Amino acid sequence: MEKFVILGQNKRSCNSDAATRKKIKRGKDDRIKEEEEKNAEEDEDEFSHPVPWQKIEAEGLDCDYVLLFSKEEADHLFKQLEEEVVYSTGEEAKVQVFGKVYDIPRKQATYGDTGLTYTYSGVTRLACPWTPTLEYIRDAVTKVTGQTFNFVLVNRYKDGQDHMGEHRDDEKELDPLSPIASVSLGAARDFIFRHRDARGKQSCRQIEPVKLELAHGSLLLMNPPTNTFWYHSLPVRKKVLIPRINLTFRRILLSDEDKPRHDVQECTVQTGQKSSG
Results as ranks from 00 to 15, higher is better:
I6Q: 11
L7R: 14
Q9R: 15
R12Y: 07
R12D: 07
C14V: 14
C14T: 14
C14M: 15
N15L: 07
N15I: 11
S16P: 12
S16G: 07
D17R: 15
R21I: 13
K22P: 04
K33F: 09
E35N: 13
E36T: 10
N39F: 10
E41M: 10
E42C: 06
E44I: 15
S48Q: 08
W53E: 06
I56K: 03
E59G: 09
G60H: 09
D62H: 15
D64I: 04
D64N: 10
Y65G: 01
Y65M: 08
F69Q: 08
K71A: 08
H76Y: 12
K79E: 15
Q80R: 00
E82W: 02
S88D: 14
G90N: 13
E91C: 02
E92D: 13
E92F: 10
A93G: 14
K94S: 03
I104S: 03
P105Y: 00
K107Y: 06
T110R: 05
T114M: 05
T114L: 06
T114P: 06
T117K: 02
Y118H: 04
T119N: 08
Y120K: 00
S121P: 12
L126I: 13
T131G: 03
E135S: 15
V141E: 01
K143W: 09
V144Y: 01
L153C: 06
L153Q: 03
L153K: 05
N155M: 03
Q161H: 13
D162M: 00
H163V: 04
H163Q: 14
M164F: 02
E166N: 07
D170T: 06
D175W: 01
P176Q: 00
P176R: 00
L177P: 04
P179D: 01
I180T: 10
L185I: 14
G186E: 06
A188E: 14
R189S: 01
H195R: 02
R196V: 08
R199K: 12
Q202V: 06
S203A: 11
R205W: 04
Q206T: 14
I207Y: 07
I207N: 07
P209L: 02
K211D: 09
L212C: 01
E213Q: 02
A215I: 12
N223P: 15
T228H: 08
H232V: 12
S233C: 11
L234C: 10
P235S: 02
R237D: 15
K238I: 11
V240D: 06
L241R: 14
L247V: 07
F249Y: 09
R251S: 08
I252K: 04
L254I: 13
S255Q: 00
D258I: 14
K259S: 08
D263N: 10
E266L: 12
T268K: 13
G272Q: 01
S275I: 04
S275V: 07
G277S: 12
